[in-house]
Computed example of a mutant assay.
Amino acid sequence: MSGTPTFVNDVMAERVVGLRAGAAFKDIVKAMREWQVGALPVLDDSGVVIGVVSEADLLPKEQYSDRDIGRYGQVEHLSELRKADAVTAGALMTAPAVTVAPATTLAHAARVMARNRVGRLPVVGRDGTLKGIVSRSDLLKVFLREDKDIAEEVRRQVVPRHFGTRTSTIRVEVRDGVVTLSGRVHETALVPPAARLAREVPGVVDVRCASAGPPRHPNLDPDLPEADHPARSEAEPSVRRGGR
């Protein structure tokens, strides 16, 4: 893995196989086994992604082979029964396909996967043609980044942005992807936004803050009166207690 992976284009697999809409059921199964994948994109004649066939689309063929589910079951599982009768990729595929662009951030791609409950996404160009495939395991490659590289980026990109010229008082340590920010800061309100920005650095697992505010000025001469309690003037009359 060269450089810092930030976009789908950095981690996607470019060598992929696509199916034509007329691909036969058994050929689909063979392709999945050969490529060791659980889903394959379906392309039209111009190479545009029009759908995806997954193992879940193929399973109804076996699941409903006996058709013994009753009339009400047939209504409830109509979509699965249609797939059970399908014999080509065009009839089996889920369409339209959920896709991402090469310049999609890894974080956004992960949200798309989670929202649509899929483990692989076709990567398409502006014209809809297939450019690659990105999987969950591809998105996790970012966490293989070296701790020293993460620390350097936090020092270079995060610390100066929030703490300005006082960066010498901020320490950045990274261990197993966990960033720790420590040292004294002139304004503690700056720490939470700095932590949020550090969490966005590729490869960061978590951010912990051990920063302290500016030191309190010590009372250098305790015998002197406090500034907000001036000493009583000698000319100021005193009040005697317990007699005249």
Results as ranks from 00 to 15, higher is better:
Pro222Leu: 12
Ile28Tyr: 01
Pro41Trp: 06
Ala103Lys: 07
Val11Met: 08
Arg244Phe: 08
Val52Leu: 04
Phe143Ser: 14
Phe163Lys: 04
Val112Gly: 00
Glu34Ala: 12
Glu14Tyr: 11
Ile50Thr: 13
Arg71Pro: 13
Ser2Gly: 11
Val42Ala: 05
Pro202His: 00
Glu80Asp: 12
Arg33Met: 14
Glu34Met: 13
Gly90Tyr: 09
Ser46Cys: 14
Glu173Gln: 12
Ala114Thr: 02
Glu187Phe: 06
Tyr72Thr: 14
Val16Tyr: 03
Val53Glu: 01
Arg232Leu: 09
Thr6Ile: 13
Val185Trp: 03
His229Gly: 10
Glu152Asn: 13
Pro193Thr: 08
Asp221Gly: 08
Met32Gln: 07
Leu78Ser: 11
Gly70Met: 06
Ala151Met: 06
Arg145Gly: 07
Asp221Pro: 02
Arg67Thr: 05
Leu92Ser: 05
Met32Pro: 06
His77Gly: 00
Thr169Val: 14
Tyr72Cys: 03
Ala151Trp: 00
Arg120Trp: 03
Met93Ile: 10
Asp68Ser: 15
Val154Gly: 07
Gly243Cys: 07
Ala103Ile: 12
Val201Met: 06
Gln157His: 14
Met93Leu: 14
Leu220Ser: 14
Thr180Val: 08
Pro218Tyr: 11
Phe7Gly: 13
Arg33Glu: 13
Val142Ala: 02
Asp228Cys: 14
